[in-house]
Nucleic acid binder design. Structure first.
Lengths: 169, 169
DNA sequence: GTCTATATTCTGATAGAC
DNA sequence: GTCTATCAGAATATAGAC
């Protein structure tokens, strides 16, 4: 299977050079492993966003484009991570409150950044997330490793910015 | 598990009032069941698209909106079908040539309809598919059964049409 | 701290009674 | 045509040797 949902503890142990049973010295259950990966993924996301160029509002378009491209590349760098963090394909996995807090924090930071350059209300934001994750999903589904949908990111950002500018006037 | 990937033959048999073993009177393997569902799904898709109002080009915007809404509702009506037809979450499933031909036919029809009202080249089409499937995915992931992203479809269609009109001038 | 051995449960699939 | 009985393998997880 391609994707995170079909990875067994045997597979996972093999990738780290251990037998499946040895993983229980580090985690009490498979769900706990998912939870640690979930939390670590959002911590990576926050850490990576922090290295982006700070906002000085000089060029809204360039800033939005850079932010979306960074997010796109983060999502397409690791399919298992993307599925765990942003899709819902892992069987019966529910993040712990601690890990969920990290995810909420990451989401709030992203919303805050996007509010500066573009999105005003929840509907605006929902449209942005749909377009950007739609591009990511198509890239994974139909051209993994390529740039067919990544190349459309500038067009999509312009489209979204134009739509919102037109909407305010 | 939510979704198609985790459904066993026992689950599937129970939903149709049979034991898992009895399914083998109708299908030689689980993959064959997936294949039949895949083909039937695309046949439903083609049949439903055929009932839509024919294109007379009188109102491009209304026509595009109706088409996208119909597609959106088709995708959000049945999660298992959506995952099987448009996502890639089923373990090791590869459609048979016969079923794949139905899918290719359905795709060609959709492209043909969209070409009339909007998309001109492959990149245009890719942008449409990314936006529409992005809306569907967000609806399933974050508001299943609701209309939070469905309500954004008119905005998205206008946005795409405007972007393409502006691009041609 | 990692291993072997094992328990338990679930999976897809087959054989054969009726 | 659907059932019961059963198989072989893989899944998560535990116990205990070293």
């Amino acid at each position: 299977m391609h994707g995170l949902a079909g990875i067994s503890l045997r597979d996972l142990g093999q990738q780290v050079g251990l037998r499946a049973q040895s993983l229980y010295s580090y985690f009490p259950s498979k769900q706990a492993i998912y939870d640690a990966m979930f939390r670590q993924g959002y911590e990576q996301f926050i850490a990576e966003a922090a290295t982006d160029t700070p906002s000085d509002n000089s060029d809204v378009r360039a800033e939005a484009l850079a932010g979306v491209l960074a997010f796109f590349d983060f999502c397409t760098a690791d399919q298992a991570r993307y599925q765990l963090l942003f899709q819902r394909v892992v069987p019966d996995f529910e993040p712990s409150p601690t890990s969920m807090a990290v995810a909420v924090d990451a989401y709030a930071r992203t919303v805050g950044r996007l509010a500066v350059v573009a999105a005003a209300d929840q509907a605006d934001l929902d449209l942005w997330t749909a377009v950007v994750t739609g591009l990511v999903d198509q890239q994974w589904s139909n051209d993994p490793g390529g740039t067919r949908w990544r190349d459309l990111v500038p067009r999509a950002v312009d489209m979204l910015l134009d739509e919102q500018r037109r909407r305010r006037s």
